[in-house]
Design a protein around this nucleic acid. Sequence first.
DNA 1: TAAACTCCACGTCACTTGGC
DNA 2: GCCAAGTGACGTGGAGTTTA
Length: 113
Amino acid sequence: MQKPIMAVTGDETATTGDMPTYQIRAPTTALPQGVMMAASPGSLHSPQQLAEEATRKRELRLMKNREAAKECRRRKKEYVKCLESRVAVLEVQNKKLIEELETLKDICSPKTD
DNA sequence: TAAACTCCACGTCACTTGGC
DNA sequence: GCCAAGTGACGTGGAGTTTA
């Protein structure tokens, strides 16, 4: 079954402009520990060698994706935390403005008795 | 106290995106 | 067009909590 296509990237900066994006692609130069570079395809001969190479490539891909997923979750958590603290600040600010408005209304409204 | 439930972190897959 | 990186969705397992 085909999954629905995702349009959301998690980059809220485009709409708000004041929050840090959590989708940042950092170039990776170093391989994870214990990972060897692949032999050149030209040096592979037997079907067994090809199968081993395919397995090795898959494991490398999974390992990289595992790390990428961890990092992605870490950034997302940070981003959500950041949004939550912003909400808290804005709620306080909003409350203060409402109180100020009520005070001004009291001052400006004509007394009727 | 065992079963049911909830929450969280993780691994994997499928897909998108950007750089070359 | 290919490849690597990023990420949403999904399934799973472990730890903590609630309930009968």
